[in-house]
C-alpha cells in the first residue's frame, strides 16, 4: 500500500510571532521555521504504519519555495521514502493547494493520503476536506486513531461531543489531530540516510493549473496588550474594584 503525506513549512510553534511594522503581514525575516506540528504527526503515523508492514511506500509532498526542502528532508529522516516539491514563491490558499495536490495524487496513485488537520499559520482546516472532495474520496478528519484493514480504514475522529468512528473505503483521505501520536525525534543516522533519498522538484507553472486566490490579507494587527495587574491593600478595596470597576459583583 502506498501512502502520500503532505507537509507544510510554517513559523515554529514556539516562536513569538511578530508583525511587520507596516502591518501588512507576519514578519518572517530571521524567524525559526519548522514543519507544521500536525504534518509531523501525519508523517509519524505513516512511518508507524510502514513499520507495522501495512504501508510499503511513503511519499511526502510539499508546495513552496526552494527552502521547503528542509522540511521534506526532515520528513525523509523520520522515515518517508521519497519527496516531491511543487516549487513556487506564490502564497496559496487552501483551494489552490488542494488543486495542486490533486494533480500529484493523480500521478502517484496512493491508496491513502494522510494530512495534518490544519496548518498553525493560516489555521484554515480546509485543504484535506477540499482535496477529498476534488478526488471524490472518503474522508476521515481529526483522527485520533487509525486502523487499516484490507480494503477499508477505520478512523476514530475527535468531534465536539466526544469520539466518532467512521469506516472508509480505500483509497481514502485522513486528516490527523494532536492526540494521534507523539512524533519521534529525528536520529542522526536517519538524517544521513535521508540525504541520499530523492526529492523530485516540479515547477508549479508546468502543471498548467488555473489558480485563483479568493482571499487577500488587508492588514495584520497584534491583539491588544493586557494591562498590568495591581495590588490592592485591603479586602474592602478589592470588593470596591470588583463592584465598581470590573462590575463583576453587584
Amino acid at each position: 500500500m502506498k501512502a502520500l503525506v503532505t507537509v507544510k513549512r510554517v513559523i515554529d510553534y514556539n516562536v513569538k510571532v511578530r508583525i511587520k511594522p507596516d502591518g501588512s503581514d507576519v514578519d518572517l525575516t530571521h524567524v525559526k521555521m519548522a514543519m507544521n506540528p500536525f504534518c509531523e504527526i501525519a508523517i509519524e503515523e505513516a512511518v508507524r504504519l510502514k513499520e507495522k508492514g501495512v504501508i510499503s511506500e511513503i511519499i511526502v509532498v510539499s508546495i513552496g519555495a526552494q527552502v521547503v526542502q528542509e522540511q521534506l528532508r526532515a520528513a525523509l529522516a523520520m522515515g518517508a521514502d521519497r519527496g516531491i516539491l511543487i516549487q513556487t514563491d506564490q502564497t496559496l490558499g487552501s483551494f489552490s493547494t488542494a488543486k495542486i495536490l490533486k494533480t500529484v495524487v493523480e500521478s502517484e496513485n496512493p491508496n491513502l493520503i494522510i494530512m495534518g488537520k490544519q496548518s498553525i499559520d493560516s489555521d484554515n482546516n480546509q485543504t484535506g476536506q477540499m482535496l477529498a472532495a476534488l478526488l471524490g474520496w472518503g474522508q476521515g478528519t481529526f483522527a485520533s486513531e487509525l486502523t487499516v484493514h484490507a480494503d477499508t480504514i477505520s478512523v476514530t475522529r475527535e468531534v465536539d461531543g466526544g469520539l466518532s468512528t467512521v469506516e472508509l473505503n480505500l483509497p481514502a483521505l485522513v486528516t490527523v489531530d494532536l492526540r494521534l501520536n507523539t512524533p519521534r525525534y529525528v536520529s542522526v543516522p536517519n538524517i544521513m540516510k535521508a540525504k541520499r533519498k530523492t526529492i523530485d522538484i516540479t515547477a508549479l507553472e508546468t502543471l498548467n493549473l488555473s489558480l485563483v486566490e479568493n482571499n487577500e490579507i488587508l492588514s495584520v494587527e497584534s491583539p491588544p496588550t493586557r494591562q498590568a495587574g495591581i495590588q490592592v491593600k485591603t479586602v474592602d478595596e478589592l470588593l470596591d474594584k470588583l463592584k465598581n470597576e470590573a462590575k463583576v459583583l453587584s
Binding site: 515554529d12 510553534y13 506540528p37 526532515a74 525525534y185 536520529s187 542522526v188
Partner: peptide, 20 residues
C-alpha cells in the same frame, strides 16, 4: 557526526527539528 559514528566516538544521536 558521520566521522564520529564510524570511528565510534558517537553511538547515536537525535537532532532537534523545532523549538518544542
Amino acid at each position: 557526526l558521520e566521522k564520529g559514528l564510524s570511528e565510534g566516538w558517537v553511538s547515536d544521536g537525535v537532532f532537534s527539528q523545532n523549538e518544542t
